[in-house]
């Protein structure tokens, strides 16, 4: 039985190890031909002329992810609080499967929904082509909702009942007991929900490629197109050859490092809080 557990764990570690090895083995040779500094800080992307600058995509990835969190995190957390402490049993019974369903919708379906409904809506309301940072952020916000809701709800439900009862006993109302006592106690869990959502948002590709316009230039205008790191890889992999192909794998390396850095930063912050 122990062997089985060990084998299962090994599959997981092996997968992570192989992916990292593949990514770095295929991506690093690119930096021998092209300066890593120019790659990360360059603002022009013209692979057929051997100009590879992915700063617009790095900024783009953070831009849409930040937008998604700005919209998705408050909605998600408030929904989780509602489900854990305010809603009646029948309402929760409907909401739980609904949220789970939202998590199960394939990203290409989200993309199609965005392309057919959100993009024309933004086009009519604000002009332009509609494919924009705004639509990408809204779509991502919807996509990360289930992650944030489920994790936050679990965290809130895990807070010992004594916190809430103690607060009530001191004369606080139901609302202030929940918001001043229970939710702060659940904060680490809520933050990990947000970080998981952030991870999903920064890695999302299929839905974004359909609604973001994918312009490889610095994104500033919220109503104009943007290209993220993930989109850059998916978009051009089909026809890329030689250095162009290597540059796309190198884009993957940069994304990988960014995600790793976020994870480490998060666990570092969490550990410090525990120590305090």
């Amino acid at each position: 039985m122990r062997g089985l557990f060990l084998a299962s764990a090994c599959v997981c570690i092996l997968a992570v190890g192989t992916i990292s090895a593949f990514l770095f083995a295929n991506g690093l040779p690119f930096f021998a031909k092209y300066s890593a500094w120019d790659f990360i800080t360059g603002t022009e992307w013209a692979p057929l002329r051997n100009v590879f600058g992915i700063l617009p995509m790095i900024v783009g990835s953070f831009y849409v992810t930040f937008g998604a969190l700005l919209l998705g995190a408050p909605i998600g957390i408030l929904t989780a609080i509602l489900m854990a402490r305010f809603a009646s049993k029948p309402v929760v019974k409907v909401m739980k499967p609904a949220v789970a369903l939202l998590a199960g919708i394939p990203s290409v379906v989200y993309g199609f929904f965005g392309l057919m409904l959100l993009v024309p809506f933004v086009r009519k309301a604000f002009g332009g082509t509609g494919k924009s940072v705004l639509v990408a952020s809204v779509l991502l916000a919807i996509m990360i909702l289930p992650t944030i809701i489920q994790t936050s709800e679990a965290a809130i439900n895990a807070v010992p009942g004594s916190y809430y009862e103690g607060s009530l006993a001191l004369g606080a109302t139901h609302e202030s007991s929940v918001f001043r006592s229970v939710v702060p106690a659940a904060r680490p869990g809520i933050i990990s929900g947000i970080v998981l959502g952030l991870g999903r948002a920064i890695g999302e590709t299929m839905a974004i490629i359909m609604v973001a316009g994918n312009n490889p230039r610095m994104p500033f205008d919220i109503l104009k197109g943007v290209r993220t790191l993930t989109v850059n890889v998916l978009m051009e992999m089909g026809y890329a050859a030689d250095v162009h192909r290597e540059s796309l794998i190198a884009t993957g390396v940069v994304l990988f490092i960014i995600v790793m850095a976020i994870n480490f930063l998060f666990s570092f912050i969490n550990r410090r809080r525990v120590l305090q």
Binding site: A46, L48, R49, L115, M116, V119, P120, R123, T129, G130, K131, I209, M210, G213, N214, N215, P216, R217, K224, G225, R227, L234, M235, E236, G238
Partner: peptide, 30 residues
């Protein structure tokens, strides 16, 4: 003196013939 692709930077970039057709079909100004 080298060939350069001057495609409009604000264009909508899509990766596939079918997506070009879907995008153009859905936007009267496309």
């Amino acid at each position: 003196g080298k060939d350069q692709d001057y495609t409009y930077a604000e264009a909508d970039f899509v990766n596939g013939t079918s997506l070009v057709i879907t995008t153009v079909a859905s936007d009267p100004a496309a």
